[in-house]
């Protein structure tokens, strides 16, 4: 499958230390501006617990240094790096590579 960089928007479109959602074809992708580390992360927007499209509205932070997002519905935690669920459930969410160029954020997606 071919991969490509999708331009999602300006760095400032994504709230500092928070997330926004983008739509790529029929997929919703959550993009997080982890400002304190100067990093961007991207994951699926759907929470695997109750299949709600919510992770972009979740709160980010860290667990022992590992960056994570907490789903706003029932607070399941997911690593932003590995996508693994950090609150004991057997879930893994999809993560996407990101990059920043000229003030724009890009996410690597399958075309």
């Amino acid at each position: 499958m071919k991969e490509g960089w999708l331009k999602v928007g300006k760095v400032t479109d994504i709230p500092e230390n928070g997330g926004s959602c983008i739509k790529y074809k029929d997929t919703q992708i959550a993009v997080f501006n982890y400002t304190v580390k100067n990093e961007f992360y991207a994951t699926q927007n759907e929470c695997p617990h109750r299949h709600e499209m919510t992770l972009s509205r979740g709160m980010i932070g860290d667990k022992a240094g590992e960056p994570k997002v907490a789903c706003p519905f029932h607070k399941r935690n997911f690593s932003l790096q590995s996508g693994k669920c950090l609150s004991g459930d057997d879930y893994t969410i999809k993560t996407y590579p990101t990059k920043v160029e000229d003030g724009y954020v890009y996410v690597k997606v399958e075309e």
């Binding site: 709160m59 932070g61 860290d62 960056p67």
Partner: peptide, 9 residues
């Protein structure tokens, strides 16, 4: 660290 869903709110 950077906080979490417990301390931030």
């Amino acid at each position: 660290g950077h906080g979490c869903e417990v301390c931030k709110p």
